[in-house]
């Protein structure tokens, strides 16, 4: 069995690793920082998530325009709790399990 080493765990590297393993090779993937790459972990995707949060804040502020009243009228941003749990679920630590 051919042993293939893929250096880099970004969108190029993980696709190569998956293709190699599907074709019957033994695969080792080496990644220095973020499995899934910069885009997934610290760039494109997280910024879109932040953007979505900002849009929700904006909508909640204008809730009355849509006929929804929020009695205390406060919007509190909380990056801990449920948000953190969801984020950890989709973090790169579980990535290796997802792709195999």
């Amino acid at each position: 069995m051919t042993h293939i080493v893929v250096i880099g765990g970004g969108p190029a590297g993980y696709i190569a690793a998956i293709a190699a393993i599907q074709n019957g090779s033994q695969v080792t993937l080496v990644e220095e920082k973020y499995l899934g790459g910069t885009c997934l972990n610290v760039s494109c995707i997280p910024t879109k998530a932040l953007l979505q949060s900002a849009e929700i804040v904006e909508k909640v502020k204008n809730a009355l325009t849509f006929g929804i009243e929020l009695p205390d009228g406060k919007t509190v941003i909380n990056w801990g709790g449920e948000y953190r749990k969801e984020k950890d679920k989709s973090s790169s630590s579980s990535w290796a399990e997802l792709v195999t």
Binding site: T2, H3, I4, V5, V6, I7, G8, G10, A12, G13, A16, A17, A20, T28, V30, G37, T38
Partner: peptide
């Protein structure tokens, strides 16, 4: 690590 082939995908 020893291998037959290497794929460099380090961006």
């Amino acid at each position: 690590i020893q291998a037959d082939k290497f794929i460099i995908a380090s961006g």
